[in-house]
């Protein structure tokens, strides 16, 4: 029996695919119908986790780690090979439509809004799809328009909106039917710093004010740090970390990399005297990689130190990549 406050529960959840070659033409289709050739791929292997209502959880892992396969099983799109899965007490693949009423989803790279129509029309259509009564719909719309500051956007065709505006409209669309669980996939992808911050503020509000459970998958570790208290890391189909974001952060530190392109050609030996917390990790011709701990040293401080010693052609600051986090989790364990 699931705990009353349990939003998501998986036990030993596994999914393996028999990956078959897609063939062309109708005869290819007929052959695919009967053929059994192909290789088995275990995308998710014995995942057990439990998420309480009201949690804001980051679900992360490298590409192909099994993130989206897990999400697809939670949303009822895929049927698991084995194991147990429950979302708000419902087995998603058995009662997909009932589950659909409980969940909302935002996929950063796609839109569920009608591209050539103003958002308000999409909202009315979604109201019909999710069977929200007309008067109720108008009330909820007013609330969401207020929350996401959409009043100036909802009459403009979606294709004419900026990426950030689109994402705000998208979030409103996903919340119209008051889902208990919201799945977000890369909600800040492609946004500039201001846009990202806006979206994060809204996401925080949804979680805190409405108690909506949020599962966020993102490559952007800043998203995870800014929003989630708990992070679950999956790699090769298995959970390799499930704990607070703080504990994860202790694992990977707060490392960033400053990439410097020198103006005067190849970097000299003993490149520069760097402040504490920064080390040169790689030099290739005129390009130098400096890793630094952002807790000890701010990017402007480091950049200033570099600039006083060298003529610089270009600078970029890179966040630690999820692949690096995964690598460090493994090396910590061993």
């Amino acid at each position: 029996m699931s705990h009353p406050n349990c939003a998501i529960r998986c036990e030993g959840l596994s999914k393996s695919f028999r990956v078959m070659r897609h063939r062309s033409g109708i005869f290819g289709a007929l052959r695919a119908l009967f053929s059994t050739e192909g290789a088995d791929v275990e995308a998710v292997r014995g995942v057990s986790l439990s998420i309480d209502e009201g949690e804001f959880v980051g679900y992360l892992g490298p590409n192909g780690a099994g993130k989206s396969t897990t999400i697809k099983m939670l949303t009822g799109i895929l049927t698991p090979s084995s194991g147990l899965v429950e979302v708000c007490g419902i087995v998603p693949h058995e009662k997909r439509r009932e589950n659909a009423a409980n969940i909302g989803a935002v996929f950063g790279q796609r839109t569920q809004l009608w591209w050539d129509l103003p958002p308000i029309e999409s909202y009315r259509l979604l109201g019909k799809i999710y069977r929200v009564a007309r008067s109720e719909l108008e009330a909820r719309l007013a609330e969401l328009i207020d929350l996401f500051e959409l009043s100036s956007l909802i009459e403009t065709p979606v294709r004419k909106l900026s990426l950030g505006e689109k994402m705000r409209c998208e979030l409103a669309a996903a919340l119209l039917h008051r889902p208990r669980v919201l799945f977000l996939d890369e909600p800040t992808i492609g946004l500039d710093a201001v846009g990202k911050e806006q979206v994060r503020t809204h996401l925080r509000a949804i979680n805190q004010e409405r108690g909506t459970t949020v599962v966020l998958t993102s490559h952007d570790l800043d998203d995870i740090e800014a929003l989630c208290r708990r992070a679950i890391v999956i790699d090769e189909g298995q959970i390799i970390h499930d704990g607070t974001v703080d504990s994860l952060r202790r694992t990977f530190g707060h490392h960033r990399t400053l990439v410097v392109d020198l103006a005067g050609g190849a970097a000299p030996d003993g490149f520069a005297t760097l402040p504490n917390g920064a080390t040169v990790t790689q030099i290739e011709g005129a390009r130098v990689w400096i890793e630094f701990d952002a807790d000890q040293l701010s990017a402007p401080q480091l950049i200033q130190a570099v600039l006083t010693q060298h003529d610089v052609h270009d600078l970029t600051v890179r966040e630690i990549a999820i692949e690096e986090v995964v690598r460090r989790i493994y090396s910590n364990k061993s």
Binding site: T75, R97, E98, A100, R110
Partner: peptide, 13 residues
Amino acid sequence: RDGELDRVLIRPV
């Protein structure tokens, strides 16, 4: 091909 069918599947219709 584009996985847009997933969106169709997570609607209660």
